[in-house]
Design a binder for these strands. Structure first.
Lengths: 179, 179
DNA sequence: GACAAAAAACCGTCCAGACGGTATACTAAA
DNA sequence: TTTAGTATACCGTCTGGACGGTTTTTTGTC
């Protein structure tokens, strides 16, 4: 119980360091310090650095997956429900949740294999989106657009002004309701 | 003249290692070996590792910028020319040029500040796209969609099948020609 | 064109520091 | 007294980069 909280604190600390100072600054010591813990204490919860990165990715992905599934299932309109849920949830993650960003970057830096769970989830979503009672090409463009928005936030590549961002989201949702 | 070739070879080597083995494997020694050079020789051309990463980013961005500018200027239709050029060139980069990917990932890992030139270029393009005689929201969505496509290639997040990818490109270009 | 001198390109070794991880000791609660 | 959790000390390895040297290319002069 303390264990679970500490684990969470450690992952938060790691994500924050990655976000602020870059991946190379995320050392066991720096994470431990940020989480107000000793290196030994950290290693008790994550026996290796790879375990830490894996923990980051897996934990964030679990939430991400559950939310998208729930969004699709609770949508009263069948047509485009997966596309819509994907748009909503990815938009939300991209603007508020920096931990998934950190996990993504850490994973590709430390070991591309750690991306596997994310890649599998995406494969599944892409399939749902292509079979969403919409034109597959247009639906895919909607998916790519939110991904692009997320991308722009991660790397700071002309992230959209708040107002434009809201308009883009609104338009994407509208388009997800079909022709 | 040998200098220029060697520099290019070194950057190629660095990009290849990043792409194959990840950022952490890109050490001065591994790059030197891949470029068929000694560590001393490498450090002659790039006095520090940061210089190497900066070189990667700057060189690739220069090409990227020139191509987008040229594409817009050579477009006979005024409406949507920047959006179209951005789509074309980013699509091209995302499918064939892995060096910009490598530069992007290396930069964010080693020092987020190294992303500045890319960020400035994007800011400029975004502005052109918003003033491209198209609906700004729709034009922005097109931009984001190609970025999303690039994103999907970098991280392997459900990269599109070849055929779908072509259809998406075609549709984006069509949409860039206005309502 | 010959050739010395200077500059450019390149090599291999060495080292201080940082890092991941182990071993072990401590502490508080049950 | 056991055990989960934390702390401290320590070790072996790797890495960036400094450095002194060597080879190759260019340049200036006759």
């Amino acid at each position: 119980m303390a264990s679970s909280n500490t684990k969470q604190a450690i992952m938060n600390a790691a994500a924050q360091i990655i976000h602020q100072d870059g991946i190379l600054e995320m050392t066991l010591e720096s994470v431990a310090k940020q989480a107000d813990l000793s290196k030994g204490g950290l290693l008790y919860h994550f026996p290796s650095k790879e375990d830490l990165v894996k923990g980051l990715v897996d934990h964030q992905m679990q939430v991400y997956m559950e939310n998208i599934k729930a969004g699709a299932e609770n949508d009263t309109t069948n047509k485009g429900k997966w596309t819509r849920s994907f748009i909503q949830e990815t938009f939300r993650q991209s603007t508020s949740n920096k931990e998934l960003d950190a996990g993504l970057l850490a994973a590709i830096a430390y070991d591309p294999n750690l991306l596997n769970p994310i890649q599998e989830a995406y494969q599944h979503w892409q399939q749902q989106i292509e079979e969403d009672e919409l034109d597959p090409v247009k639906a895919t463009i909607l998916r790519l657009a939110v991904d692009g928005l997320w991308f722009s936030e991660i790397f700071g590549l002309a992230p959209l002004a708040k107002e434009l961002k809201e308009e883009v989201l609104h338009e994407l949702i509208t388009l997800s309701k079909g022709e």
